[in-house]
Lab assay of single mutants.
Amino acid sequence: GETKIIYHLDGQETPYLVKLPLPAERVTLADFKGVLQRPSYKFFFKSMDDDFGVVKEEISDDNAKLPCFNGRVVSWLVSA
């Protein structure tokens, strides 16, 4: 499998796309960081919350699996 991750960088209009050679349910924050090489950023991901619906959730645990929608991951990188 392959996972497409779209990421928005510090408010830039056009998002970036990276592809990881892993199925979406196995991709972790560490996998994503390894491709990006951007150490001083906070990582937020499109996520579903039972109370609020669609939210941007910050993930900082490198072992955390990334939230996935239709085989895609959507993220926002914010300068720390």
Rank of each mutant, 00 (worst) to 15 (best):
D49M: 08
G1P: 13
P21Y: 03
F45E: 08
P15I: 01
S40E: 12
N70W: 04
Q12S: 15
K33M: 01
T14S: 11
V35L: 10
V74M: 10
P39E: 12
L22V: 13
L9A: 06
V74A: 05
E57G: 04
G1L: 11
V55D: 09
Y16C: 13
Q12F: 09
C68H: 14
T14H: 15
S60H: 14
K56Y: 15
D31L: 02
E58N: 06
A24V: 07
G53M: 12
E57P: 07
S79V: 03
D49P: 14
A30P: 05
L17M: 15
T3M: 03
V54L: 11
L9F: 05
F45P: 05
V27E: 04
S40C: 13
M48E: 13
V35R: 08
K56N: 03
K19P: 02
W76R: 03
K56W: 15
A24K: 10
K19Q: 09
F45V: 02
E57L: 14
E25H: 12
D10S: 03
F43P: 00
I6Y: 15
V73M: 02
S79P: 14
P21N: 13
Y41F: 13
K65W: 01
N70R: 09
K46I: 10
K46S: 10
P21L: 02
L9Y: 05
D61V: 03
N70A: 05
P67Y: 05
C68I: 12
L77G: 05
F43G: 02
G1E: 13
P15N: 06
T14R: 13
D31Q: 04
K56F: 12
V55A: 10
Q37K: 14
F32Y: 06
D10K: 02
P21I: 05
Y16K: 13
N63L: 04
S79G: 09
D31P: 08
G1R: 10
G11W: 07
V35A: 14
G53K: 15
F45D: 02
R72T: 15
P21S: 09
V54F: 14
F69Y: 13
R38E: 14
P67C: 00
V35F: 12
V73W: 05
Y41Q: 08
I6G: 04
F44Q: 02
E58L: 06
L66N: 01
F69A: 05
I6H: 11
S75E: 02
V74F: 12
D50K: 14
D51V: 11
R38A: 13
D61W: 03
F45C: 05
A30C: 03
S75N: 01
R26V: 11
D49W: 07
V54K: 04
H8G: 03
V73R: 05
L20A: 00
V27R: 01
V78H: 12
D62N: 09
G1D: 10
K33W: 06
K46Y: 08
W76G: 04
I6T: 11
E13M: 12
D50C: 09
M48G: 15
K19D: 06
R38Y: 10
L29T: 05
E13G: 08
R72V: 15
I59T: 01
P21H: 10
V35N: 08
L36Y: 00
D50T: 12
L29H: 07
K42Q: 12
E2N: 13
N70L: 02
S60G: 05
N63A: 10
L77V: 12
I5W: 04
G53L: 09
K65L: 12
A30Y: 07
V55I: 14
F32P: 03
F69L: 10
E58A: 04
K33S: 06
W76M: 03
F52G: 15
I6K: 01
L20H: 01
F44G: 02
S47I: 15
N63S: 11
S60P: 00
R38W: 11
V73L: 05
K56M: 13
